[in-house]
Design a binder for these strands. Structure first.
Lengths: 345, 345
DNA sequence: CTGAAAGCGCTTACAG
DNA sequence: CTGAAAGCGCTTACAG
């Protein structure tokens, strides 16, 4: 690594001022053609490029956004991130990606780091712990000191910002309804998350569907499995001691793992037990049977969130703050882990 | 967003110099306790935090590294990125993530962007096009102007830097050998990548194993499928017109998709056709049958690459450049898509 | 047509 | 114990 060339050095070699060089390189009409030409040529052959950090300091804009997610080893967030990255790059922004590993402390530390002038705005999906403890001061601090925030998927009503969410209530309603219409009556719900707002919404949607179709609720088959519990044991116990003819997995792991456990116990999918999964992984096509799922259009969600954030960053100073909450429509992708509607009527 | 507080403002409110405030906040012994106390207290209650951009300009260090990958919708890169992110954050670095979408042009633009002082170093896995066109000037330019590079997985010998790779040759050899030992004689290779160095290494490892076990080579079942061709048609044609009793998929998609196509055509896996996949996806556990694969320990690869990069960034100026190439050991994860060794002897 | 000055927010060697 | 000065790399309004 040799020394990077600066305006100062160019100015020295031609015995002109830094200001002249700066203007010459911007092809300013203030500068004579002769000077411009020799400076531009020199700069080009010496591969001069302006220092972004100096420009950031000057403009108080970094053209960088931060993204904080609870996990990256989760297809939902990977796809969302992919959408964010695409839009950001199209609009000339870099993205700093941080994984909170669902820890509040990590989230706070990361935000404080980004807050010190590193980014122009922030996209965040809250960590479980943040939602559980309802602690949001770090977010408020960011908004006060650094710039706009757009929350996606795991959001909180306590913070007044733009949000992009999935219609979790209706989504769960739709899934439950589909199972009911294909003849299921004892529909279990399985999740490895708990203290998260979206899970509550999903459960409510599920309960509403049961109510509307006049099916009884069995709380023992609403199975929110805490991290310290053994997933397999919980599912086996449920299958052995409760009536279950369908399982809604609230994330991919819950769905696919429940299906495998049920198969191991001799149940036929979908005839004995139907399976629907929230969030759509490409791999659901390849399981046996392939898994019916709810496509949350996560790439699109990421794109939408990034677009909103960047438009907020670039809006003229003094624009009145109007926050919107965008809801991404979901679609049910029917595959082989649920019975077909045609057969049940 | 209110105005962020600066040293200057603190200096003004106490009628002292900026230098004094700066020193007071660093608890310098040069400053009287009284001054320190009032300044520190004021800074604390007003939530003062130093501007990172200003510090970067001063120190010529950004405590940020760049990561450029061909894709993020690929579990291998997601895991590698996860490893990188962990190590970087542990060591106090932010990471700017950029996806090249296998395009040389995007790769060049991204590197030039990062080169202008944005990052202290770069981790990169080359795009297909870069390898195909053997064009590396942008990488050389980064090394000259910005800092160290560590290449991972898709690397090039033409660039003299640190590298972290998988032992693709031996890896393919091992996979092929395993298939041979379980009784396969007509082993196909399927990939959707072509012009990439790692693919050549894998093919060579495969060929060497055939040679060592004195099996004939059938070039028609070495199937590197170009993007413009239809994957399904290619595989069907191969299965219909060639003798095939095993398939090695060089990436996840090729393996799982080939398996499904073979099953659709009535082949039993693994008795008629065995399947092995390069790179280990968690979902291979859940297919029917579960898929035997090569675990490349991609999280570990990411961690290793990040550690090397950061140690290079932090090494004292003037340290002699010594570049190393680290090879990550792989392991064969036996599942149900290959016959068991026991049965074949 | 060219340059000196002020400034973005900070630090540190040096003077007083 | 405190502050003026120089500097990181750049831009722009202003003077000449």
């Amino acid at each position: 690594m040799k020394q990077r060339i600066t305006l100062k050095q160019i100015a020295n070699t031609f015995n002109v001022s830094i200001a002249t060089v700066s203007k010459a390189l911007k092809d300013s009409h203030e500068i004579s053609n002769a000077t411009k030409l020799k400076i531009q040529e020199y700069a080009y052959t010496h591969n001069y490029r302006p220092n972004s950090i100096a420009l950031s300091l000057l403009n108080k804009k970094t053209k960088t956004i931060g993204v904080i997610m609870p996990s990256i080893l989760n297809p939902f967030f990977v796809k969302t991130f992919s959408g964010i990255e695409q839009v950001a790059n199209d609009k000339g922004y870099n993205v700093i990606a941080i994984v909170s590993h669902s820890k509040l402390e990590k989230e706070i530390a990361s935000i404080h780091m980004l807050e010190n002038g590193l980014v122009d705005g922030l996209l965040i999906s809250l960590s479980e712990e943040t939602e559980a403890k309802q602690q949001f001061n770090h977010l408020k601090s960011f908004i006060d000191n650094a710039g706009p925030i757009v929350m996606f998927d795991r959001v909180s009503d306590s913070i007044n910002t733009d949000k992009v969410i999935v219609d979790d209530f209706n989504c769960a309603y739709k899934a439950t309804e589909h199972l009911i219409k294909t003849g299921c009556k004892h529909i279990a719900v399985v999740s490895t998350l708990d203290n998260v707002g979206i899970i509550k919404l999903r459960i409510n949607g599920y309960l509403k569907a049961l109510e509307d179709y006049k099916l009884p609720v069995n709380k023992k088959i609403i199975n929110l499995i805490k991290p310290r519990y053994d997933f397999e044991t919980e599912i086996k116990t449920m299958l052995d001691y409760q009536d279950v003819d369908a399982i809604i997995g609230l994330e991919e792991f819950s769905a696919v793992e429940s299906m495998v456990i049920a198969q191991d116990r001799g149940y036929n999918i979908p005839d004995d037990i139907s399976i629907i999964s929230f969030t759509s992984s490409d791999f659901f096509k390849y399981t046996k049977p392939s898994i019916t799922c709810i496509n949350q259009h996560s790439v699109f969600m990421g794109k939408t969130a990034a677009e909103i954030l960047i438009s907020k960053i670039e809006q003229p100073l003094g624009t009145e703050d109007v926050f919107e909450t965008k809801t991404i429509k979901t679609t049910l992708v029917e595959r082989k882990s649920t019975k077909s509607l045609a057969n049940s009527y």
